[in-house]
Write a protein that binds this DNA or RNA. Sequence first.
DNA 1: TTGAAAGCGCTACCAT
DNA 2: ATGGTAGCGCTTTCAA
Lengths: 353, 353
Amino acid sequence: MTTTPRRARAPRQSDVARLAGVSQSAVSRVIGGDTDAARIPEATVRRIQEAIKELGYVPNPTARKLRTGRNRLLGVHTFEAVFPRAREDFYFEFLLGIEERAEEIDHDLVLFTSTGGADGRRRVYRDGVNRLNVADGAVLLGVAADRAELARLEADGYPFVHIGRREVPGTRITCVVPDYESAAAAIVDRLADLGHTRVGYLSAGIDEESYADRRRGYESAVARRGLRDVSPAGPPGPGGVPDAAWLDRVADGALTAVVADAEWLAHPFAEALAARGLAVPRDVSVAVLEGVAADAPVRWDCLEIPRREVGRVAIDTLVGLLDEPGRDVTDVLVPCVVVEGETVAGVSEGSAG
Amino acid sequence: MTTTPRRARAPRQSDVARLAGVSQSAVSRVIGGDTDAARIPEATVRRIQEAIKELGYVPNPTARKLRTGRNRLLGVHTFEAVFPRAREDFYFEFLLGIEERAEEIDHDLVLFTSTGGADGRRRVYRDGVNRLNVADGAVLLGVAADRAELARLEADGYPFVHIGRREVPGTRITCVVPDYESAAAAIVDRLADLGHTRVGYLSAGIDEESYADRRRGYESAVARRGLRDVSPAGPPGPGGVPDAAWLDRVADGALTAVVADAEWLAHPFAEALAARGLAVPRDVSVAVLEGVAADAPVRWDCLEIPRREVGRVAIDTLVGLLDEPGRDVTDVLVPCVVVEGETVAGVSEGSAG
DNA sequence: TTGAAAGCGCTACCAT
DNA sequence: ATGGTAGCGCTTTCAA
């Protein structure tokens, strides 16, 4: 048995060319499948392919990338968590969609993992080096995206898309986002269809784009349907309990339906109602504007956030950006599904007014 | 406000050089920190750094890699599973160690994710292309490592280490492995120290290197300490229940201690003993040659597999390979800790003999 | 139909 | 101390 020397130099196109008795460019063309443009005779192609096989030649992706700017590598950068850990549920479905779609379109994925700061937050730029640059472009995700880094990436002309809306003043970044606005509006429409005319919005008070989207959808639908908005004035107290004065008004029949932008607001609200002798959905309907685990204690009417689809769309959007660098896409919306649960009902006679 | 043209060409060293009024190689030297070798005056260095800042220059890792063969990118390839899922995941602790160490030595990690086959198994080679090639080297893991791929990688001279021993005939692959052999021997030594002279080995019958390691450690220690080996003849029946005839001999006092190479063998064994009126560890001591969850129903005497440390060592070994391509490392052993539980005791008087 | 050669951005050698 | 330049492996234009 011949002992292969360890760490032998990898064969290059020129080696293949020499063995096949052709020029290096011929080899390149055969590998690139360019046999149409410059018709290479069957026989030559075969000779080259044999040489490739004999030498065990594999193209060098680095050289390819340097030359063409592409290497069919897409980066994925998450701004927090080491390997998907605490937020594993949050990321997981997105990642599945990303992977699934990348593979369908024959791209490889590169997951950038290293943190970079002692704070555990992940950075794109380390010592001024854009680590993502080895990939053709990247999908970024993370609730705590660093806006300065996004802005810099954008200024550097690095192609990327962000999952979740992120607005950075003076910058147009391409985002792929669940369409919370339409979903919130659809829920209000449903309430209106069921006869509700006085509704309220329970806000967690989170200052983030996706929550603004929900609120906007709610407000536009309330206006469009001519409903009366009877939302509490301020943010909830600790534990998500709403303002007591407002609760008393609700107990007096000030509204018949409430929309909460987080599940953890709905629970204390329902309990506060119960304490006042009201029941959900008999007296007040409640809908939640986010996804709720299937095994949750209460089957809230809620949203289903199409995480997987968002991941897939992110890949397609990114590749679109790569193929057409001129394009200026900003938001790509992915529809949410409204899930009917057990907490929304028609207006009961007693509370109609 | 000036509108930056989207997707502007990234600045190169030559741009910096022009702006600073120096040659491109001077720029390269400043960036490479080579100011010692070829003393560049303070003033020049500063001018160059200003130009770098003004232009927002960042080095191109692809070009770097093409030139030097290194880009401080280490690949991680897992042969199965999509994204590392839960904490309990087989991979998780290894990955933590890998990430931790890579970061300490200022390398970035690239997680190769895409499957490649319809079977869901991950491949290194796809259409003959070694996808790992963008990284300087890689750590591979996976219980179902494809030996053919390992052999090919090795033949191609690609630098990699494998976590867990994998033997491929005719090939010397570098493995980082928990030292099961020593650990198994240490456990037997402890049993011998406690007065046990007749012992048995419960094998799950898994045909894998790490199980062979355990058995070897057991057998060498048994021989060295002059113990009598009273192991069951064949593999366990369904459910891990050992051969009944052998159990009867155990009930007759044929041995006083047993070592199991999997936790799921220890349970049915203990139950079978109980059915025959024997107790663990009163009559028979039992040790498990693998890690056991801290919250397991029985606190077995067992091993603690240093997964995190294995990950760290894998990185160091890999980088060692990169720095000294000539070296021919094969197995790197990482010590296991023997965890004392409640299932091993000294030989009781009644069963001594 | 095929080959020669330029050049992607960088590092390092060899001049000055 | 600094600059010119070769060349990493590849794709692609231009000539032959």
